[in-house]
Amino acid sequence: MITRLVDRIQTLRATLWTLIAPPLVWAAHFLLSYLWASVLCAKRGAFATEPALFWGCTVLALVVIVGCGVIAHIQSRVPGDNPPHEQGTKVDRLRFLAYSTLLLAGLSFIGVIFTAVPVLFLTDCR
């Protein structure tokens, strides 16, 4: 099944969807973190003792980002000539977008973790 999935990914053409998904997920998670904390603090007056919703959303965000990264990684490994891949060909375009997606996914992954870590330590509404 995994082989079939990899084969399927490799047949995908260059796409912007996987490129923009990780930063969008990061932005959505960032917004959710602040809204979640401020709404809970305003309504309860105390920080959430079991932030299951938050951690569930964090894991979901990381899974989506890792998924985009994996797709990009597989796409970037198309066989071809040596670098630099800077020609206006389909293969080079795919490599460029895939590599950009991979780097953006990495950045978004770190961003989500950096946004989530304070919830572990700052369990306070002040």
């Binding site: 670098p83 973790i113 870590v117 330590f121």
Partner: peptide, 29 residues
């Protein structure tokens, strides 16, 4: 490029994450 990825991306991210974890408890009221 590999060196830049490791020394310019992965290592700084790990160092910053370690510093964040190190400094966050001091921010707790």
């Amino acid at each position: 490029e590999r060196f830049i990825l490791i020394a310019g991306g992965i290592v700084p991210s790990a160092v910053l994450l370690a510093l964040l974890i190190y400094s966050l408890p001091a921010m707790r009221p």
